[in-house]
Design a protein around this nucleic acid. Sequence first.
DNA 1: TTAGTTGTTTGCGCTGGCGCAAAGACAGCG
DNA 2: CGCTGTCTTTGCGCCAGCGCAAACAACTAA
Lengths: 227, 227
Amino acid sequence: MDKAGYNLTDFLYGLSKKQGGEIIMRGTTLDLKAGAVLFREGDPATRSFLVLKGRLKLGKVHELGKEVLIRYIGPGELAAMITVLEERDYPVTAETVGETRVVGWDRRTMLEIMTKHPQLSINMIRYSTDRLEDLQSRYLELHAEQVEKRIARSLLRIMKQSGRRSGDEIIIDFPISRQELADYTGTTLYTVSRTLSAWEKKGWVKSKRARIIIADPHALVLFSEKV
Amino acid sequence: MDKAGYNLTDFLYGLSKKQGGEIIMRGTTLDLKAGAVLFREGDPATRSFLVLKGRLKLGKVHELGKEVLIRYIGPGELAAMITVLEERDYPVTAETVGETRVVGWDRRTMLEIMTKHPQLSINMIRYSTDRLEDLQSRYLELHAEQVEKRIARSLLRIMKQSGRRSGDEIIIDFPISRQELADYTGTTLYTVSRTLSAWEKKGWVKSKRARIIIADPHALVLFSEKV
DNA sequence: TTAGTTGTTTGCGCTGGCGCAAAGACAGCG
DNA sequence: CGCTGTCTTTGCGCCAGCGCAAACAACTAA
């Protein structure tokens, strides 16, 4: 279900080191600083990307301002597979969270690689299926679960993907504001703030501006699963 | 974005008639009556399916009863691509809506076919990407849009996928109850009922038990896009 | 250090839409 | 034809969570 994280070997699963190297070589490596926009929702999709280092955040905005944070993309994960198809626009905006290195391939190259290495297509289907499944679960949650529980689950999800253990505590090692957590969870800045304050009093989390530490992961898990 | 519908040629795009025939032949064709369960959420995924005729509905349930209707799957569409991966469970339940014919392949066969025909993998990525995009949009809607607008959009989406024109009106040609429309939209039976009643008074829709006719599609579109 | 910017907290009032309850409508079956 | 089960409608009360407003805290640049 919810994998802790991905890495390059997932994308290149079943291929030799040599083949993998060739594939990466055929793309263009980009080094981006924090907060850079890699591609923007609505623009024609020209390249697919693989994250090598750092993190992207994928967001989508609603006509009147409201924004939703679809997913954080870490090392070994793909963005904009849609480029493989003809004449499509990026459905989301990708922005770097910290310093980030990605490889990008244009459509033509991507198709050549995929035809040459059927295994790569299968790996892409694996990834895409995982993404779909993840979103289906969150779609269900968004409809069925109370806000506080959703916030808990969101935090845990992010923790699994990008947590760094430090004693009993787990540090989320990139800056995430109340607003972003709200966009990710499907609620508002205010509700997130109130909730985190309450949890801080209980000793479940600690937080500074845009930094979150999960002090008692177990308590959070119990809460998120409570009936 | 939102295609009106799929058909077999999408799944077999880029393959010869002969190759396509062979692929279908290697699967097992099943004829199911209305209301049959093809696979159940949580069971080990053993087969992938392609719908030839009829319709499946994919649903997912939350621990305490609440249900969400992820999608209706019509002719030319795939279900349970996840089977390609090892050791997975079906993430949703698939139930037939009317009499339905599907072809199913087990994992081994599917992988063989995909390795032999790289184009097929690309077609699967296309489909899976479309599905992901669709769900991303609905995820955004669920968070950002008011219930009435969501109901309107849901109806229009279903109409595009399975509407039959009859004069100015469009008939949704399979039974869909208030409860199902609610599960699809992410609201409740009651709210759907109230909303449809109101629209019926305005002459936008007509409905009998589990049957819906869109009498004024244009008005509905305008409403769904209104600021 | 100060001024400016950006993120966070909290009180407070309001409301969309949920969900019970109960009655009504329709379909199918024997 | 009437009985049974399923689907639909509508009144009514309630509350989770939204969102404004305003104060506060932390970081940045000069």
